[in-house]
Nucleic acid binder design. Structure first.
Lengths: 136, 136
DNA sequence: CTTCTAATTTATAACGATTATAACATAATA
DNA sequence: TATTATGTTATAATCGTTATAAATTAGAAG
């Protein structure tokens, strides 16, 4: 995990397992996805540890917490600035690495101080499209 | 509420009260905000009715369900296409009425069929900015 | 290497948002 | 008016998440 030396956290076996699972993971897993996957190798792992660790990682900017899925928080270890492409049927999330220059005029800004921008593209992923046509 | 004739729903006193509350509401209220406000006039109103009604309104496209707030769903009766400006401190949400032409190349699209786009601007609202400076 | 302290993990309870269920009430329709 | 579908209510259940307290462990100090 990049930046790990720059913003270090105390490394425990549990945290290492979670970091290992997240490293390069492009699925944008939820806490429960992470728990399920990691507890296979660490059966004693508690759910609370997953939440605690995610909170710690979020604080050190090692993961981004996404509010894209209305059902649950999802986590993104990709630290490059990027946007998302979301399947409205299965909630799959893909990354979009492009920089959109999105600026607001003063009147549009409405007194807000803007610190970041994020674009969501909504649609249907290839897997769900296939599923559809087969049902005709 | 616009479109009400085009996509009608059966109008009950409860639904009317909820629609009245939502009409022109720019606060992007949660189900609980709506319940609190509406049950002042309709003390017998049940929480379930708020959820049921919101689900019905969503189905008829009378409200948009937002996943902007990680804690809870919020609802937007504004049917003009628009984007959002979100205060990271108090979760206030303001509307941005601008059309951004955001297109992805085929390779960026990754097989997804894109049906919509939404831009979130993150920052600090004027109220929270004021709160900050007074604490120096 | 041992001792100490603070941080971490665990199990579990509590919480808030949301959904499900079933009985009751109301509206629309025949 | 009788019938049927739809909406409302109260309430239980569920799910994701946070809080708590006791037990464990990592890391620092000696």
């Amino acid at each position: 995990m990049t930046h790990m030396k720059k913003y270090p956290i105390r490394l425990t076996p549990q945290r290492l397992a979670i970091l290992e699972y997240l490293e390069g993971n492009k699925a944008h897993p939820s806490a429960s996805d992470i728990y399920k996957a990691v507890s296979k190798k660490h059966p004693m792992m508690s759910f609370a540890t997953v939440y605690n660790t995610l909170e710690t990682l979020r604080g050190k900017k090692h993961v981004r917490e996404l509010s894209i899925d209305p059902e649950k928080k999802r986590f993104d270890p990709n630290k490059k600035p990027h946007h998302h492409l979301i399947c409205l049927e299965c909630r799959a999330i893909a990354d979009v690495h492009r920089n959109f220059a999105l600026d607001l005029t003063d009147s549009e800004r409405y007194g807000y101080e803007i610190t970041g921008t994020h674009v969501d593209f909504y649609g249907v992923c290839p897997k769900c499209k296939r599923g559809r046509s087969s049902k005709i």
